[in-house]
């Protein structure tokens, strides 16, 4: 059972992390990556984070990573401005070298990070005592899964298909 005291602690720690996010954001961008055509929300560094995390999150190799990046971008573009702002903070935090190093615990830049380091980061945030870090993990989990499993290219491996008796009748 979560106690009131734990809740207060979590809330306070959450605010500290948010403050840190604001403080750390932007001045020292951690990143290279070629510019991405046609992305609405994601910046080059954000796209690299998705590209690096998707195979670890989904537990699959050989993914169509650019499709996933585009899917995440479209998904975010359809969210409320207030939610987009929170995701901006999340990506700014992860894209910043200090945020990546100290909050995510990932030592190398995203593009070079090893799979086991990325998995350790995901696991730490997934299981974090801080609600805010758990929600950061859940956001990444939902976005990457939605982008991949919403894409018909993922379906064959699942053994899933739409009902054939109707598909030919659709406009």
């Amino acid at each position: 059972m979560i106690t009131r005291r734990q809740l207060i602690k979590t809330g306070m720690a959450g605010s500290v992390v948010l403050l840190a996010a604001g403080f750390l954001a932007s001045p020292q961008p951690d990143l290279p990556a070629a510019s991405q055509g046609h992305l609405v929300f994601l910046q080059a560094g954000d796209a690299q984070i998705i590209r690096s995390l998707a195979p670890v999150m989904l537990g699959m190799a050989g993914l169509a990573l650019e499709d996933i990046v585009r899917g995440v971008d479209v998904a975010i573009a359809n969210l409320l401005p207030a939610v987009q702002q929170e995701l901006r903070q999340l990506f700014d935090l992860l894209g910043n070298r200090w945020g990546r190093r100290w909050l995510a615990g990932v030592h190398s830049p995203w593009a070079q990070a090893a799979a086991h380091d990325l998995a350790a980061f995901l696991r730490r945030w997934q299981q974090s005592p801080l609600l805010l870090l758990r929600s950061g993990y859940q956001a990444l989990h939902a976005l990457i899964n939605a982008a991949w499993f919403g894409n018909p290219a993922s379906w064959t491996a699942l053994g899933y298909q739409q009902p054939q008796q109707i598909m030919g009748l659709l406009p």
């Binding site: 999150m57 989904l58 997934q126 939902a142 899964n145 499993f149 699942l158 053994g159 899933y160």
Partner: peptide, 25 residues
């Protein structure tokens, strides 16, 4: 149980959730 909503709703990540998704039927 459709793929997108299931992918988003399943707990866990990596090989364990991939293993479960691949048994979708």
């Amino acid at each position: 149980v459709h793929p997108l909503l299931m992918g988003v709703t399943l707990s866990g990540f990596g090989a364990s959730s991939a293993g479960l998704m691949q048994q979708l039927p």
